[in-house]
């Protein structure tokens, strides 16, 4: 028996309807599994669905009652996160679940991908014989990386040319976005409160981001990246590289840079250390403002040539206007 659409994509309305239409109730088994799901996300992995028989065997065989447990545990995990309102956990969970969904999308049927696309608001279609996405959908979900910048893409008549792989990448972003938004949970059931407490015991103490910088010490582009790190947002490759080069160039100790990166939802200790060492060893220099612009990371018109030349003042021409002239 193959994975059902709902098991692969538990955030869809179909999955929600299945849970609501069943007599499923929150119980300890489901809550244990929900906790496990979040804890696995914290380790930078996505939780594989429950399997029959051995622990990690493939292919998966899911009994219908397990499917409901699977969906229920997802819903319970979301309820705990909505109750805890912990940005770090929420973003970690969002990244893990988005990656999990994406791993299924690559192998999934066109029909299922279309169904999922409808749910996420991503509708690839053929335009002039090419696979394409409407510009507004592309701009809404494209990852903030140079490869996806609209300016380097083929755009015509409201469409952007894309590959199937890119569509899946955009869908992953859309899932992540969906996972990051929560409605506040009023009066959660006692079992959710209890297990949320249990969950927090298992969560490593959050690294508090302390910078020796004062506000205005860094140019707006770097401030934005630091804010992103503080808010546990997932920065793209170029953004991380730039931030690391900048901080190291400002003589921030490696351990401290690493601590800043540990705020990112997909942080991996060893990988980050290796990459920071690599930057130091290779002596990477700070990208110029023009390069920052082409990375899509420039957010102001400071006119300083390179972020490293920031002298700590915002020029009057950059201050916002209430209304345009």
């Amino acid at each position: 028996m193959e994975f059902s659409f709902s098991s692969k994509y538990p955030f869809t309305s179909e999955a929600k309807q299945k849970v609501e239409g069943s007599s499923l109730e929150l119980n300890d088994e489901m809550m244990e599994r929900a906790v496990q799901r979040v804890v696995t996300a914290l380790k930078g992995k996505a939780e594989a669905p429950l399997e029959h028989g051995d622990e990690r065997g493939t292919p998966y065989h899911i009994h219908p009652s397990d499917e409901l447990l699977e969906l229920g545990s997802y819903a319970a995990a979301r309820m705990m996160l909505a109750h805890l309102r912990n940005r770090f956990l929420i973003n970690k969970f969002a990244v893990a679940e988005a990656k999990r969904a994406s791993s299924f999308m690559g192998k999934d049927s066109e029909e299922n991908l279309r169904k999922l696309g409808d749910e996420l608001g991503i509708n690839p279609q053929e335009f002039e014989g090419k696979l394409a996405l409407p510009v507004y959908q592309y701009a809404s979900f494209s990852p903030r990386s140079i490869d996806y910048r609209l300016i380097f893409r083929n755009v015509k008549n409201g469409f952007v040319e894309v590959t199937r792989h890119e569509v899946i990448r955009l869908m992953e972003e859309a899932v992540k976005g969906k996972m990051e938004s929560y409605k506040p949970l009023q009066n959660p059931p006692q079992i959710i409160r209890d297990y949320s407490q249990k969950l927090m015991v298992l969560v490593p103490k959050e690294t508090v981001l302390k910078m020796s910088f004062k506000e205005g010490d860094n140019p707006p582009c770097i401030e934005k990246l630091l804010e992103g790190a503080k808010a546990h947002q997932n920065l793209n490759h170029q953004a991380r590289l730039v931030l690391a080069i900048y901080l190291l160039a400002r003589n921030v100790p490696v351990e401290k840079v690493q601590a800043i990166f540990s705020n990112l939802p997909d942080y991996e200790d060893r990988k980050t250390k290796y990459q920071l060492d690599h930057i130091i060893k290779r002596g990477y220099s700070m990208p110029s403002c023009a390069t920052m612009l082409s990375y899509g990371l420039c957010v102001a018109d400071c006119r300083i040539g390179s972020p490293i030349r920031w002298k700590g003042k915002v020029e009057p021409w950059k201050k916002g206007k209430g209304s345009s002239s």
């Binding site: 507004y136 701009a139 903030r144 609209l150 300016i151 023009a290 082409s294 990375y295 899509g296 420039c298």
Partner: peptide
């Protein structure tokens, strides 16, 4: 952010 992509596209910002 999506509006910025469109604005950058039109003004050719970062075009290499």
């Amino acid at each position: 952010d999506a509006r910025r992509e469109i604005s950058d596209y039109i003004s050719g910002k970062g075009l290499d």
